[in-house]
Design a protein around this nucleic acid. Structure first.
Lengths: 380, 380
DNA sequence: CCCCAAACTGCAAAGGTTTGCAGCAGAAGA
DNA sequence: TCTTCTGCTGCAAACCTTTGCAGTTTGGGG
């Protein structure tokens, strides 16, 4: 029977070997086996190698759940996103994963289908299996988030909620830049394609776009809320055409490309008839025809920052469980929560053009407010 | 202090309430609290409501990790994919998630960045925190997979490995259809853009495309292996042009669109100069210009089937742990592993056209083998 | 009035691991 | 030779649940 991983207890039944099996096989106490893995320097090299050999032979792997039960550390991070199919998320996910990996953590991703109820449920499900959860673009209410944060360490992304660490991208600034860009092109009749209800980002965009339009003496019609998908955008083609606007800012790239396609099948040309701006600068935006003018959001940086915040916040607090003193959060510490705000940038491509009454496109269209725009606008 | 969730032990320290706290607060034994949640019918309605009230008040949530430790069931499923940014995966993930949710399971997704080592590590990390793992398009060796399957229940997707439940999509058939389609259009000089090393799908495609080409008396140049990304495809534009082929089958849609873009910037027109066929029929393929002819793979069905297989396989075996007898796998049962094969379909769009020496495109180009093609080819 | 079943509830072991403490042997120092 | 220290190992409690079994109470039937 050598060569096969079988416990000594019951012949023929294959069951994962436990620390006890290894202890028995190597003739030491289980605590020594434990130390062989979690504190190797405490055990005699000779013993250690014997134990390791037995473990290897039996195919032993420490049970992370059991370990977590007592150490209070799972070395896992949960990441909850609204829609994994939205190209906005994968770069963020990947960045978070690689950052986590470099700190010896694993990331488990879950998708909520834009459903607030699913969000809550997933937080509960993840709560005791991870050391913290990254809540990305949550759709639930602030109060619910706050309540959940008592159950598990939380870092929110693209949202500001009191007393919780957060990393947000300055989409307000982005929306402002976008509107200013459109104004500079001569548009005075704008529409905003709203995103999903409950989205903080959506509110920010709306607010910023609103003031920017008002400042520029332009009209801004808000259409929404809508599902933040391609279909959601396509469905708005007809309303947009009817509204008579000459330029549109969409909640995200997905809606923007959906809209463009919808307009296209209606015979409306972009950007000749209507200019369209997206938000996110996903890989998509370089692939559409015309290429999409959009607001670039630093998704990778956001993912990394969120992981960092969670881990540092986490290192200070032994979380739940554990034998030592000082378990749990001290209420005072909860206030030391930082918020990171990341800058956005307007990327001008081909889906925006001069508005009515402008014969030719001024090649320096975006230079309307030269100094402040310079650093955060890019032309491709 | 009413209204706040605080344990009785240490004042001011917020720590998740345990079953013990609830028991103390409601004046019953912890076992009664346990039953209130996991077997409500066994406890007096009056007691039950009192316990529930206390639990509510304390913000108690059963610790799933501890529960799993003894029941041997986590009600979680792991799903490991090669690249979350590849649009092939999200539909599969979503389908798996919704199927799992309907069975009261949660899905945790992890991304390996096409790295076999990361795959292995993730399986280990997930092993004790989930009831099983869906290994999607794995890049590791069969032997390693087999070895890992001793640690945790595994279902592989897009791969066949001995004695393991698997769901595969018949890309071989798809590749054959694609090649036959190209042959019917008059192409005799074909290239295949290979995917990543270690991909079962890649081998299948290669094999099937090879025989189909040979049967049709055409030449098939295999270029690869390559990273299965847009960049991977774009990088092959130059080699493809130099090779002088008139039609290309790509490992997936991503590579196909990359190639088309690359060719475009080289001044090579698709499909006039070169025809391109993708595989997967991702959302992308309808958005490119020209729209992509591609092989549709039933990703949603695959996700659902995989979850079903895992769960049924799993229901029969109480997994590890648990008090009752019969824990672990019986070696014999391992053989009752089904393999599900899902059909694919060729979707003809605009990226394929007549080959050289064909003046006009025969509108019934794909009707070369009318009967067998009819059911698995679609024209859009 | 007694017995028995039914309906609850408590007891304690179990699941796999970590870790403070104590014990032990051997070496180094006095 | 006697301490003291160091390096290693074992002991047992603890983490939070679930669950078979046994004990208690209550109500009904005979």
């Amino acid at each position: 029977m050598s060569g096969t991983a079988v416990t000594a207890t019951t012949e023929g039944v294959r069951v994962p070997a436990t620390i006890r099996d290894v202890a028995r096989a190597s003739g030491v106490h289980i605590s020594t086996v434990s130390r062989t893995f979690s504190a190797p320097h405490l055990v005699n090299p000779e013993t250690r190698s014997r134990v390791l050999a037995c473990a290897e032979h039996l195919g032993y792997r420490p049970n992370r759940a059991a370990r977590a039960l007592i150490t209070g550390r799972t070395h896992n991070i949960g990441l909850i996103v609204a829609d994994i199919a939205n190209p906005f998320f994968p770069p963020l996910i990947k960045a978070a994963e690689s950052q986590a990996r470099s700190r010896d953590y694993h990331v488990f991703v879950a998708d909520t289908n834009e459903d607030p109820a699913a969000e809550e449920e997933l937080v509960h499900a993840l709560a005791k299996q991870v050391d913290g959860v990254l809540l990305c673009s949550p759709r639930m209410s602030n109060s619910l988030i706050e309540q959940l944060s008592r159950e598990v360490a939380l870092v929110v992304i693209n949202r500001q909620v009191a007393n919780l660490p957060a990393v947000v991208m300055d989409v307000g600034q982005g929306a402002r830049l976008a509107v200013e860009h459109l104004l500079a092109l001569g548009h005075r009749n704008l529409a905003l394609l709203g995103g999903p209800r409950g989205s903080w980002t959506n509110r920010e965009i709306r607010r910023a776009a609103g003031t920017a339009a008002r400042t520029g003496d332009a009209a801004l019609a808000v259409l929404g809320p809508n599902p933040p998908t391609e279909d959601g955008g396509a469905a708005l083609a007809e309303p947009v055409r009817r509204s008579g606007v000459t330029a549109v800012l969409a909640y995200n790239d997905l809606m923007a490309v959906g809209l463009i396609e919808g307009l296209d099948s209606l015979g409306v040309r972009v950007p000749q008839d209507i200019s369209v701006v997206g938000i996110d600068d996903t890989a998509l935006s370089r692939r559409t025809r015309p290429k999409l003018t959009t607001v670039a959001t630093p998704t990778g940086a956001a993912g990394r920052a969120a992981v960092d915040m969670l881990l540092q916040h986490d290192a200070a607090h032994p979380a739940r469980g554990g034998r030592g003193a000082g378990r749990g959060f001290n209420a005072d510490d909860r206030r030391t929560t930082a918020q990171v705000m990341l800058q956005t940038e307007l990327v001008i491509r081909d889906s925006t053009g001069p508005g009515p009454h402008h014969g030719a496109a001024p090649s320096t269209a975006a230079a309307a407010a030269p100094d402040m725009v310079a650093s955060s606008t890019r032309r491709e």
